[in-house]
Write a protein that binds this DNA or RNA. Structure first.
Length: 110
DNA sequence: AAGGTGACCGGCC
DNA sequence: TGGCCGGCCACCT
């Protein structure tokens, strides 16, 4: 039965929810934490479904370049950027400044 | 059941 | 960092 809570999505959400305030991570990092490292695309796809879930701060998840690639899927175009700046993260034109400094690696705490 | 898609990543120039 | 190409895996029609 096609449960809306598929383990794969839940897995991604669990990691995303663990992202601390003022921190960001990349899809690949989450994918690796899941053990699927090579399918980072699935992480992004899972985030697409995360749109329905408020517990998932998708705005803290960006690509490995620190570019807000997914901001297009947000309500507004600059909403994602605003959220990050609101957390103290410097964002310039959808590009996170000092990305490495704000980068947070998801730990498989499960 | 098969094909196409995608909020990516890594390698190479 | 920037552009191009291939790989990768789950979801949708």
């Amino acid at each position: 039965m096609t449960d809306p809570n598929d383990n794969f999505f839940q897995r991604v959400y669990t990691i995303a929810r663990q992202i601390p305030y003022g921190k960001v991570t990349s899809y690949g990092a989450i994918a690796r934490a899941l053990g699927t490292g090579r399918s980072a695309r699935m992480v992004g796809w899972a985030m697409n479904a995360a749109h329905n879930i408020e517990d998932v701060p998708a705005h803290r998840v960006v690509n490995r370049k620190g570019l807000l690639t997914g901001k297009h899927h947000f309500d507004g175009t600059n909403l994602m950027q605003q959220l990050l700046e609101n957390e103290g993260i410097r964002v310039l034109d959808s590009q996170i400044q000092d990305f490495e400094k704000h980068f947070w690696e998801p730990e498989m705490d499960l």
